[in-house]
Design a protein around this nucleic acid. Structure first.
Length: 149
DNA sequence: GCCAACGTTGGC
DNA sequence: GCCAACGTTGGC
């Protein structure tokens, strides 16, 4: 899951313990949250538009998809006039802090790591929620733990 | 700040 | 249903 650290960083999640992942307004990302993410799923927490961009930590899904009611609040920056209680249109999950990675894993190192050639973030970086394979997840964690993966 | 990639919108 | 216009994202 990607976030701009200026807006919400891994340290914000650490402080809060857990948070609602509101504001996703892309259908592919929404579908992944709604249809694929399950309670207990591990999450790589990625800092985008950062210096450098990369994976900063690990999180976990603690609540499966439910309506993103921010879309129904006209005062929210995430308001969508087409969302309603009958058809919420957008969904969010709750995630909790697991850990900060001892070593930040930059996008550069993701791109050069063996085994991550097909990782979506190294190719189609715009999608804000992306599926990660078990192998990819383990390689990133190994890099983040300081290993050479 | 630039710009490429790409998703969305709306006219036809 | 096509596609041009437009808006957003995010790396650089």
């Amino acid at each position: 899951m990607k976030t701009e650290p200026n807006t919400y960083s891994i340290d914000d999640l650490k402080r809060d313990g857990q948070t609602q992942w509101e504001g996703v307004r892309n259908y592919q990302a929404r579908n992944l949250m709604r249809d694929e993410m399950r309670e207990g799923d591990r999450v790589l927490f990625y800092h985008s538009s950062a210096n450098p961009p990369g994976v900063a930590g690990e999180a976990r899904v603690v609540r499966e998809a439910y309506p993103d009611y921010f879309a129904q609040n006209p005062d929210s920056p995430y308001f969508d006039e087409k969302a309603s209680p009958e058809d919420p249109r957008w969904f969010m999950v709750d995630v909790e802090f697991v850990r900060r990675l001892p070593n930040f894993v930059s996008l550069d190192s993701l791109k050069s790591a063996k085994g991550l050639e097909d990782m979506i973030v190294t190719k189609r970086s715009r999608l804000s929620v992306q599926p990660v394979t078990n192998d990819e997840f383990n390689i990133v964690c190994a890099l983040g733990d300081g290993g050479s993966a």
